[in-house]
Each structure stands twice: as structure tokens, then as C-alpha cells.
Nucleic acid binder design. Structure first.
Length: 482
DNA sequence: TAGCTCGTTGGACAA
DNA sequence: TTTGTCCAACGAGCT
């Protein structure tokens, strides 16, 4: 048995349980050297945003502490992945590198280069799946092509047996006698300079243990009503596991196993939730097979779509000052908590892309920077869906009506009032359209439209008509007008 | 190959 | 108030 250490290169798999690479490294029997590399150049055009970095900081801290409790150390290094790995190998005499696979284009390329380079240098490099139920290369249509529509994708994989979580035998985990130098966590500079993130910790605890607490709570209290409740942003009963999934503090195998063992197989809520897990898989599938989609529409004609580019409108949307209460509530929830309810994500995206005719990539960028769960696969799929240019996209004539959506899914206006307090005194009837309220009522509520709360940046009917016109004209004649 | 069915999340309007 | 119909046409995916 080798006693030269195995480098366990942690990336988006910041957990000890159900961690395939870690389990395999332990089974190998050599001491394990846990390493995290902060390599900001590895991500191409999409380095993690500020909110993501906040989460990453705390997730690393948590992993550090979990490893310390076992007698180990998480080595933290900033810099080029290859160079850091070379340094760690030189300092430790490691003869193996194990990791769990990543799926975004630039990361896949980087990992492939690392594998070739270090294998050629005589290091045993092994990679594993710990992030997905079905890796993208294992799923295709009967014609052997990648799935571009969700339903056939789901039908293809829904009956496959989900592997059980990997048992990580931590009692057999051993560490080297000495560790190479580590940088202090703060030196990674992950905490944003602006202090907008100060409240995140009121809403989130980015630890592996907290992920399981959330899952337990969700399964115990919420999942059976998930199909009924998930669309109501104020009392949604969604699992809010997305950031934990993104950083790998919990894995989909763990979620499915818990779902299977603790819910009735016939329960509709559990079934719909399971489908959401498979949506995440579908997003990874699309990103893997179409690695350019973060920057390019899957339907190439849309690369020429004549978006308006209006920085004032974009800014009003970003700041939650569009004058549409449900939209502003969502954008402020995002800013305040680092997260936004899924239904509201669709509503704000529709407004930006359709009413305001702003490029979906602007929305994707903003979400990327402000969402704690920002995930290249899911973010890209979602925005291309809204933009009507992606896999399984919404039809172009589908324009969400922000008032109707608000009345339907926030009938009492409690969600709006939570995040848009200047409307708190309005009766529910007018909360989603304050401009329709009688003057006296507005006065009593202390609202001066255009001063204490904005008038709509564009009138709904006109905005809808303009969007339908722009999209239908473009479809008839997708060539740019020169 | 040709033909068939179907498509996560909706809105507006008429009856 | 509720329900049905249209929006509009296309490509994915299957047989």
C-alpha cells in the first residue's frame, strides 16, 4: 500500500458525506491531503460573482472546521491550478490526485488539461461523479443526439435507478503527518467589499450540516404540499437547497434517497419536487452539450435580435424601481437575501426581456453576480427560456402580466409588502397596481406615485404590444436591419 | 423516410 | 365568475 498522500482537490463538492472522490481516496488507504484552489482564471467569462463568493467563503470555513474535527487541514491556495498542484506535489510527495467532475466548458477543458499533464508526469489522476444523478454523456435521444427538450429528457432518465449516496468511511480517513502551507481564508478575498451582503447570514447558514437540516425540514413539513404551495413566494415551501446544491454541500443522490425513504411514491408534491431535481440535471445536460450557451443563444438566429440597450431601464430593474410591485419585490428580495423565489424569477425575467426589450444576457449577468445559488447551467437555461431563444424555451408571445401574476400568487400582497414597504399601507386590492388606487386611498397610505414609489417604467399594454411586435417581426425576418 | 404528436411555469378576450 | 379559444408555427423526438 502506498503511503504517499492523495491530493483531494475540492471544488464544487464541499462536503464530506456522499463525496465519491473522498470515499475512493479513503478506500485507497493513503493519507488524504485536502486542497482547495482559488483559481479565478479558470472560469473563462464567468468567474463566480460576489454573492457566490460570500457563500464560498463560509462553505470553505465550514469544511475547514469539519476537517479539523477529524484531525486534518484544508489547504487553501490562490493561483493557477496547475502551478498550485505542482507546488503541493513537490511539498508533500503526493502520488495521486482525486477530484469530482465539473461540467461547464472552461472547467471541463481545464480539468482535461490537468489530467493529461499530471498523468504524463506519473501522477495517478482519477475523477468521479458526485454532482449529478446522470452525467450528460450518459443521456441521449434514440438517435444518439443530446436532448434539447425537457419532457423527453425526463422520460429518458426517470426510470433509471438512482445510485445510493456513497458511504464515506470517515473513521478510516487518515492525514499526512505534516501539511504544506495554507493561506488564511481571508487572504482569498472572497468577502465582497461593498457591505450589501451583511444581512445574508440572517437568512443562510452555508454549512453541510445546515443543508441536511433544511432537507429534513422540507421533507417533514413541506414536500407533500409542494405541488400546491411552491408558486406562492410568501409562503412557498420550496426547499431552498439551491445554493447548497451548487456548492456541493448536499448532493442529488442524498436528496433522492431521502425523498424515496420518507415520502409516499404516489405523492404529487414529492413527484413534482423530484422533477425539479431533474430540471437541474437537464440544465447540466444542455450546458455540457452546448458549452457556448452562457454567451450565445441555443437558437443561433437570436444572436441578431435587436435588443434595446437602455442602462437607465436596466438599472431601474436591478434596483427594484420598475413601478411593478411584484417585480420590485423580487429584485429587492434578491438584493437583500441573495435569493429569489422561482416564480418571481420568471416574472422579473419576462419584464426585462419582453416589456423592456433588454438582452437576456444582461439579466443573466445580474443574477450571476447577486444570487447565492448562481449556477451557470441553471442560470443560462432559465434566461434563455425567458428570452425565447433556448432549449425548450417559452413561446415568444408569452408575456407575463405582472399584475395578474401578483394577484394570482400573492393575493394578499404580503410578499410585496415585505420587500416594498412603501406600499405596506395599501389594501390588497391595489397592491399589485397602485396607480389604480383612488387618490384619497394613496394619500392615506402615504404614497405619492412618482415620488415615494415609481410609476411603471412602461405601461403594461404598450410594453406587451411592443414586445409581441418586435419578436414576431424578428421571427419573420431574423436578419439584422442594416 | 415521412408523418405524427407534443411542447414546465401564460394572457387576453369573448361568451 | 368561469371556461374555452386563440396566440403561431416549428423542431424535437418518436414510430
Amino acid at each position: 500500500m502506498t503511503t504517499a498522500p492523495t491530493i483531494l482537490w475540492f471544488r464544487n463538492d464541499l462536503r464530506l458525506g456522499d463525496n465519491t472522490a473522498l470515499a475512493e481516496a479513503i478506500t485507497l488507504g493513503a493519507p488524504v491531503l485536502p486542497l482547495y484552489i482559488h483559481d479565478t482564471n479558470a472560469y473563462g467569462a464567468w468567474p463566480p460573482g460576489e454573492a457566490s463568493n460570500w457563500w464560498l467563503h463560509h462553505a470553505l470555513k465550514s469544511l475547514q472546521s469539519d476537517l479539523s474535527a477529524l484531525g486534518g487541514t484544508l489547504i487553501l491556495r490562490t493561483g493557477d491550478s496547475k502551478k498550485v498542484l505542482q507546488e503541493i506535489i513537490a511539498a508533500s510527495g503526493a502520488e495521486q490526485i482525486y477530484w469530482n467532475r465539473r461540467y461547464a466548458g472552461s472547467l471541463r477543458e481545464l480539468d482535461a488539461r490537468m489530467k493529461r499533464h499530471f498523468s504524463d508526469a506519473g501522477i495517478a489522476v482519477k475523477s468521479f461523479n458526485s454532482a449529478l444523478l446522470n452525467e450528460p454523456h450518459t443521456v441521449s435521444t434514440k438517435a444518439g443526439k443530446p436532448c434539447k427538450v425537457y419532457t423527453p429528457y425526463f422520460k429518458n432518465v426517470q426510470d433509471r435507478v438512482v445510485e445510493a449516496p456513497v458511504d464515506t468511511p470517515l473513521d478510516r480517513l487518515s492525514f499526512p503527518d505534516s501539511f504544506p502551507d495554507s493561506e488564511p481564508l481571508d487572504a482569498l478575498g472572497l468577502i465582497p467589499k461593498k457591505d450589501w451582503h451583511k444581512e445574508f447570514s440572517e437568512y443562510w447558514e452555508p454549512t453541510e450540516a445546515a443543508a441536511h437540516k433544511r432537507l429534513d425540514h422540507f421533507l417533514e413539513k413541506r414536500v407533500t404540499a409542494y405541488d400546491q404551495q411552491r408558486d406562492y413566494p410568501e409562503d412557498a415551501g420550496t426547499s431552498s437547497l439551491s445554493p447548497y446544491l451548487h456548492f456541493g454541500q448536499i448532493g442529488p443522490r442524498q436528496i433522492i434517497q431521502a425523498l424515496n425513504s420518507r415520502t409516499d411514491a404516489m405523492n404529487e408534491g414529492a413527484f413534482i419536487y423530484r422533477k425539479e431535481i431533474y430540471w437541474r440535471e437537464f440544465a447540466y445536460n444542455v450546458l455540457y452539450h452546448f458549452p457556448d450557451t452562457p454567451d450565445q443563444p441555443l437558437q443561433p438566429a437570436y444572436a441578431n435580435f435587436p435588443w434595446e440597450s437602455d442602462s437607465a431601464l436596466l438599472r431601474a430593474w436591478q434596483r427594484g424601481q420598475t413601478g411593478y410591485p411584484i417585480v420590485d419585490a423580487g429584485m429587492r428580495q434578491l438584493w437583500q437575501t441573495g435569493w429569489m423565489h422561482n416564480r418571481v424569477r420568471m416574472i422579473v425575467a419576462s419584464l426585462l426581456v419582453k416589456h423592456l426589450l433588454q438582452d437576456w444576457k444582461e439579466g443573466a449577468r445580474w443574477f450571476w453576480n447577486t444570487l447565492l445559488d448562481a449556477d451557470l447551467a441553471s442560470n443560462t437555461l432559465g434566461w434563455q427560456w425567458s428570452g425565447g431563444c433556448g432549449a425548450d424555451a417559452a413561446p415568444y408571445f408569452r408575456v407575463f402580466n405582472p399584475m395578474t401574476q401578483g394577484q394570482k400568487f400573492d393575493p394578499e400582497g404580503t410578499y410585496v409588502k415585505r420587500y416594498v414597504p412603501e406600499l405596506a399601507a395599501l389594501p390588497a386590492k391595489y397592491v399589485h397596481a397602485p396607480w389604480e388606487a383612488p387618490d384619497g386611498l394613496l394619500q392615506n397610505a402615504g404614497i405619492v406615485l412618482g415620488e415615494t414609489y415609481p410609476l411603471p417604467v412602461i405601461e403594461h399594454k404598450a410594453g406587451r404590444a411592443r414586445a409581441l411586435d418586435a419578436f414576431s417581426r424578428f421571427r419573420k425576418e431574423p436578419e439584422p436591419v442594416s
